[in-house]
């Protein structure tokens, strides 16, 4: 890793990272704003959620009756997930793929910087951005719970573990972006390929949910290892799930490193 390049990449994407941080915070705050204070309202909402049980696996159903379950929404909201995915992917898709397309990669690699160090610097910048955005829902939920006046009923320790799981999910996508970026000829091409990877990851999850009796399919995608509903229900093990995601991310990074080293052209 090269510290100068690492900080340069972080600085380069600081605005995008801050904007992506704000998104889950807003989701968390809005969850608090819309928290139904009345128990009966929440139970009614719970009945609506139960209607999805035929289509979805039970463990994926949100518990919207308890404050803990209700605030879990912030951790599963599509905007939160998308913000997390892009926080780590943007620096990686920009360097090396984007700079390869622009021509700045040649300039960087004509210095004593190796391809491996360049990739590690970019990956670390992506990982830090993911870490930052991964804890944004926790910030949002804390603020939202305070707004709703249920701070004492929201288990922030559970949500802290869920945040770690969320960060690991983001790192899975960061590492995927590293492989894509190493192989792609330029930024737009890397973005398209990364879009396909993300779509496949979502598809695996949807297939695992809709295909009754085939829930194990989800294990092949990253979302199969991110189950916040189970955490708040006291069943899941977010740290173990995070461990699986991080292990796969490390394997992906090794693949990216080897693929980058073997490239004939920078």
């Amino acid at each position: 890793m090269n510290p100068s390049l690492f900080f340069f990449v972080l600085k380069r994407h600081r605005i995008a990272t801050v904007l992506l941080f704000i998104v889950p915070v807003i989701v968390g705050v809005f969850t608090g704003v819309f928290f139904p204070e009345n128990q009966k309202d929440r139970e009614l909402l719970g009945q609506v959620a139960k209607m999805f049980r035929k289509a979805l696996d039970e463990e994926m159903i949100l518990d919207v009756v308890t404050p803990a379950g209700f605030f879990n929404v912030a951790f599963q909201h599509p905007l939160t997930i998308l913000a997390l995915i892009f926080a780590g992917a943007i620096p990686l898709l920009s360097l090396p793929a984007g700079d390869r397309g622009r021509g700045t990669l040649d300039l960087l690699l004509a210095t004593p910087l190796t391809r491996g160090r360049l990739l590690m610097s970019s990956t670390l910048a992506g990982a830090v951005a993911t870490l930052f955005v991964g804890f944004a829902p926790l910030v949002g939920v804390s603020m939202g719970a305070r707004l709703a006046g249920v701070s004492d009923q929201v288990p922030l320790d559970y949500f802290f573990k869920t945040s770690i799981n969320l960060v690991a999910l983001g790192w899975w996508f960061t590492a995927t972006a590293a492989i894509v970026s190493v192989l792609a000829p330029d930024g737009p091409s890397a973005m398209r390929r990364f879009g396909i990877c993300t779509f496949l990851a979502f598809s695996i999850q949807v297939a695992g949910q809709l295909w009754k009796g085939r829930t194990w399919i989800r294990s092949f995608g990253p979302f199969g290892w991110y189950r916040p509903s189970l955490v708040t229900a006291g069943k899941g093990s977010p740290l173990a799930d995070a461990g699986v995601l991080v292990a796969v991310a490390v394997i992906f990074l090794v693949i990216a490193y080897v693929a980058g080293s073997r490239r004939r052209r920078a």
């Binding site: 090269n2 100068s4 390049l5 340069f8 040649d106 004509a110 004593p112 910087l113």
Partner: peptide
């Protein structure tokens, strides 16, 4: 590569960095 200075033919620079930041980055990389 420390011993080499390179100017590529189709020079591209980081558009959002200042000139000073660009010079400092490459000095650090060398």
């Amino acid at each position: 590569r420390r011993r080499v200075g390179f100017l590529p033919g189709d020079l591209a620079l980081f558009p959002h960095a200042t000139g000073g930041e660009t010079l400092s980055l490459f000095a650090d990389l060398h």
